[in-house]
Amino acid sequence: MDSLWLLFRKLYDNTGFNLPFLYDGFERSRFFAGIGTSALLIITCIAGSLLLGVIGAHLKIFWPRAGRVVVDPIVNLFRNTPPIIQLYFFYFAIGGLLPKVATAGGGEAPIIGAFGLTVISLTIYTTAFNIESLRAGVEAVPATMVEAAEALGCTSWQIYCRILLPLGFRFSLPSLTNNLVDLVKQTSLAYAIAVPEILYVSTQIMADQFNVTETMLTLLVVYTALVSIVVAVMRLIERALAMPGYER
């Protein structure tokens, strides 16, 4: 492994293409810690937004009035306002209202830190899109399926969990993939409130090493890789869940 890292040192010596986060131990550790933070952000937000999306879609479908009064305004608000201002709102306004706890250094910090507030903000933002996707997917389920289930005496929750959701989830997978890809890109906003994710770490490295071009190109590659991983996982799920006769 070390010889591999040395290769990049040689690349720098020979061509001037400086990738310190690959050959330098210190830069490498913070670079990969940044990728780790980004990955953790992505995974938590995906899990949270899918769970809340399922609940929200259920509300919209089975209690149309609650959907119109509670879910729709929230969805519309989060879809139509800048995610960066939402994040600032959560960080400066909500974060300031939270109770404070003593930290190890003797200071005080809000009970939920910048990372936690980013997760909350981005989860709600993505949930707004997921609810719409899931609802559209569920509405694509043929009405005859629901009638058959009703004739068999299923309750509405049973119909949702066993018939509408399994089928609707499959139909909404392509549009959910789009939402999650967007989420991966939105995690870069955490830079604005100093969460040490990959963009924040990269700007620090740039400031220390003056290798703007190389770091910027690396960022393009890293984000494309993160997006590709999410897309690949979603494709795998899509293929695993595919039902014969329902391919689109």
């Binding site: 890109k185 870069s188 906003l189 963009l199 071009t213 910027m216 984000y223």
Partner: peptide, 19 residues
């Protein structure tokens, strides 16, 4: 197109600002 499409807007802004 794929590289620019899959990169966050913020990174593209930095790209324009620094380069």
């Amino acid at each position: 197109v794929q590289f620019f499409r899959n990169t966050p807007t913020l990174v593209l802004l930095f790209l324009a600002a620094y380069m």
